[in-house]
Amino acid sequence: MFDLRRLHVLRVVHQLGTVTAAAGSLHLTPSAVSQQLRQLAHELDVPLLEPDGRRVRLTPAALRLLRHADEIAARWEAARGDLQAGAGRVPGVLRVAGFTSSLRTLVVPAVEHLRVHQPDLAVRIMEVETVSAFGRLLTGDIDIAVTLPNQGGPPLDDPRFEQETLLDEPLDLLVPRHHRLAGTGPVALEEVAHEPWILPAPGTCDHQEISAAACAAAGFTPKVAHEAMDWSAVAAMVAGGLGVCLKPRLVRVPAELPVVALPLAAPAAPRRRLLTCTRRGSRAQPHIAAGLEALASAAATATAPRIRPAG
């Protein structure tokens, strides 16, 4: 029999792309990770790594092994859930991660729900952007991640993860209170095609991709005048007349700022889909099941901020 932990190391190397990155996530040295893979290759009598310039890459045999490793990992997660439920025991700590704007709107309300209904369950919240969430799920750093579908991320049928829709959230157009469109009904996105926009820098977060895709669907490329990620800063820029932006409806901005959130006209009104992501097979584990139920409750009761009248 070989050590299943070595299969775990192989899966993390594949997810993160390098031995060094895997070592950091696993709290090991790169030499320890390489040694684990060499021992696994020796036990299976197949090469798992091959040179790729100054780096190494997984061999075809390693990629075939990964398919079996993913199935084993999912069965192990399911077994843990079965044993925990049979023993009537809930693990002591649930680790829930979410990207910045999801923490206030969904994760914190879910944790408040758990404090009432699962008082013996300790919960740790972590702010993790979608691009980093999958690797941290795989290593076991987190149990549930609230994520966004992102370019380059794993597909919904990825054998390592289970991804389920949590919420489809409309995007509203945020404009200054004195804007020509303020006070009107639902607006078409192309009505602001020639105005300056405020967006995050490319590659910094998923909202930039979502906004760019929504504008492209409306037939234009946004003219980015300023770059910012923090919603309070973005709203302040909009209030100052420096540009417009798309804002997820549940994201709050400072009430004192003179801005208006305008709904966009159907049927092309853009939305962002929020997902819950877990390790495949783990959703029946009592603490994870409780966390997912709490997140679903938070999503169901989330309310949109009221649109303040222009004036």
Rank of each mutant, 00 (worst) to 15 (best):
D143R: 00
R283A: 14
A268C: 10
S211C: 12
V108L: 13
R54C: 04
G152P: 06
H8L: 05
E162I: 09
P202L: 06
D70P: 00
H178E: 14
T184S: 11
D157P: 00
Q35W: 04
L94I: 00
V187A: 13
P202A: 12
A261K: 06
D143E: 15
A145M: 05
V93Q: 09
R5K: 11
D45C: 01
A213W: 02
V192M: 07
V12C: 00
T165H: 05
R306E: 14
T147V: 08
F220C: 08
A188R: 14
A266C: 01
P51L: 08
L167T: 04
K223V: 11
R180P: 01
N150T: 15
S31W: 04
R95V: 15
D172A: 03
T301D: 13
L242E: 13
R80Y: 02
A122F: 06
V146T: 11
A145V: 06
P305I: 14
L275H: 06
I144T: 12
G92L: 02
D52C: 09
L4M: 07
Q285W: 09
E293I: 02
A79C: 09
T105I: 13
E112V: 02
P149V: 09
L48T: 06
V253T: 12
P60S: 08
R6P: 04
P305G: 11
P159V: 02
V107K: 06
A73K: 04
L49F: 09
M237E: 11
F161C: 05
L199F: 13
L26Q: 04
A41S: 15
L58Y: 01
A23W: 10
L4N: 02
L103W: 03
L137G: 00
I198E: 01
Q118R: 15
C277S: 11
H179G: 05
D141F: 01
V123R: 00
H226E: 10
L10N: 07
G185Y: 05
A299Y: 02
G17T: 10
C215Q: 03
P196V: 04
D70I: 05
T139G: 14
S101I: 04
P270Y: 02
T303M: 03
A268F: 00
L166A: 06
D141G: 00
P149R: 03
A300P: 09
F220R: 09
G17K: 12
R80E: 11
V111T: 07
L156W: 05
T165Y: 04
L275C: 01
V175N: 08
A236S: 13
V146S: 05
E191W: 03
P309A: 14
V131M: 12
L242Y: 06
L83F: 06
E112Q: 12
F99R: 00
L26P: 14
V128G: 03
T204E: 15
L94N: 07
E127W: 06
R5F: 10
R280Q: 12
P176R: 07
L174S: 07
S101H: 14
Q15S: 15
P155C: 11
E227M: 13
G24L: 12
G311Q: 10
A32L: 02
V107F: 08
L44R: 12
M229E: 15
A310P: 03
L295V: 10
G17D: 05
H179P: 09
V116P: 03
P186R: 07
A217M: 09
S132D: 14
R11S: 12
G88W: 08
H179I: 08
L49S: 12
R306K: 14
S34C: 01
S297R: 11
A145L: 08
C245F: 07
L48E: 01
